[in-house]
Each structure stands twice: as structure tokens, then as C-alpha cells.
């Protein structure tokens, strides 16, 4: 994937860059409004990660510019502004998704992957991971041509894991992804364990290897073995 990260906060930029680059993605940077405008007019990206508050201009202006240039790049807004108006405005101006800071990098990765998948020209809506095949439109999972009967949450969980392969994904991040951050969850995420266990069981029973590994009690890692 070729990504453009427009973000003025250096530390955040570095973290995102490290996280995405590890998977062989190309991630370009823009630190202010001017350089961002330059980059979007010159190049094409699979997805643009856009911070709304930038030195030198408003992020919304970049969205307008993209629309004017008739660009089809996917756009994910990452903003500290938890405002409904901003969300609605952003999506109306052609952004694909809106993520409020602070976020988990795994969530960011999942959202970007989803946008890129939706935007991909070959209409490839199927994720293949070894013997697992996930049809994201029909919401069906097959292992070695055998249909798996997953619940909605288990399906979402599996897609989330495939987007964050070889990464430690925390229980917090999983809970927020599956139930939304609006739900003020209790800090006890043990109930997640049940969902992971069920998914694992269903995959292994279908003849899949056990790709999900518990990590230091903090989270899980989905990894080819």
C-alpha cells in the first residue's frame, strides 16, 4: 500500500510510520498544509491519513482540493476533534472514515486496510491468509473450502486480526473495535477472551493452524507459523 500521512505531531508520525512500514507499505509524510497540498496534487495514494488541524491551514481544505482535483484516493481523517459536525462535514466532503484521537495503531491499520480494500480497482473483496479465505462483502469465511459458521463479532475479529498480522493487538483495541468506543466499557476485558477462544476453536476444528497467540496477557498476535 502507498500511504500519505499528513500529521504535524512528530511523535505520532513516527509511531504510525514504524507501524505501517513494518508491513512493507510505502508511507510518505507531510508535516504541514503546504507540503500536503503539493503531495496530493503530484502523486496518487491508496489512502491518505489526514489530521484536520495543521500548521498553515485546515485539513478540510485538503479534502476540498482532492475533490476539485477529482482524485480517488481513500481518505481517513484522524482528528482530536470529537465533534459530530466535523465528522459529518468530513464524510460529506468525500472522506472514507473518521478516527478520533487517541486511537490504537491496530485500529488505524484495520481502518486503512478496509478503505484500501473497498477502493481497490480489481474489486477484490476477499482476504486470503494461507488456508483461510474471507469474503468481506458476503461476510463468509472458508477454510480449505469448508464454510465456517462465525458470529458477527467473530467475523469482525478475524478481519481485524488479518489486517494486523504479526502485530500484538491489545484487548483494549479489540474491545473498542468490536463494541465501539462510545460504549463506556468497564476496564475488565475478560469477556473478550470468550470470543477469542470461540474463534480459535472454530478455526482449529476446521483444520486451520492455530494462528492466534496470546501475548504477555496484554493482547494477541495473529501470525503465520
Amino acid at each position: 500500500m502507498k500511504l500519505l500521512l499528513i500529521e504535524d505531531e512528530q511523535s505520532l508520525r513516527e509511531s504510525i510510520l514504524t507501524y505501517f512500514s513494518a508491513e512493507g507499505n510505502i508511507c510518505e509524510l507531510a508535516v504541514d498544509f503546504q507540503s500536503a497540498m503539493e503531495k496530493i496534487s503530484l502523486y496518487q495514494y491508496d489512502c491518505i491519513l489526514l489530521d484536520l488541524t495543521l500548521p498553515g491551514g485546515e485539513g478540510m481544505e485538503i479534502l476540498r482540493a482532492l475533490k476539485k482535483l477529482n482524485k480517488k484516493d481513500g481518505v481517513l481523517i484522524i482528528s482530536a476533534r470529537h465533534s459530530l459536525d466535523d465528522k459529518v462535514d468530513g464524510l460529506n466532503l468525500g472522506a472514507d472514515d473518521y478516527l478520533v484521537k487517541p486511537f490504537h495503531l491496530s485500529e488505524l491499520q484495520a481502518r486503512v486496510t478496509a478503505i484500501v480494500r473497498r477502493k481497490s480497482f480489481d474489486g477484490n473483496s476477499t482476504i486470503i491468509f494461507n488456508e483461510i479465505s474471507i469474503d468481506t462483502i458476503a461476510m463468509k469465511v472458508t477454510v480449505k473450502d469448508r464454510m465456517l459458521n462465525l458470529t458477527k463479532k467473530e467475523f469482525d475479529l478475524l478481519v481485524y486480526f488479518t489486517a494486523n498480522q504479526r502485530k500484538v493487538v491489545t484487548k483494549n483495541a479489540i474491545a473498542e473495535h468490536l463494541w465501539g468506543d462510545e460504549i463506556d466499557l468497564s476496564d475488565d476485558f475478560d469477556f473478550i477472551y470468550t470470543h477469542i477462544k470461540n474463534l480459535r476453536k472454530k478455526l482449529v476444528e476446521a483444520g486451520c493452524k492455530d494462528y492466534i497467540k496470546s501475548m504477555y496477557g496484554v493482547g494477541y498476535k495473529f501470525e503465520n507459523i
Binding site: E9, S11, L12, S15, I16, T18, Y19, A22, A80, H82, V100, K101, P102, F103, H104, L105, S106, K167, V168, T170, A173, M215, V218, G219
Partner: peptide, 16 residues
């Protein structure tokens, strides 16, 4: 939110 986002992302990175 920005420093919080930094802490969160650094933790995510640290965990990797």
C-alpha cells in the same frame, strides 16, 4: 488528545 494519542501509539509500538 494529541499527547494521549502519542502515548497510546508509543505503547502500541513498544508492544511490537
Amino acid at each position: 488528545m494529541t499527547p494521549l494519542a502519542v502515548i497510546n501509539s508509543k505503547l502500541d509500538t513498544l508492544l511490537q
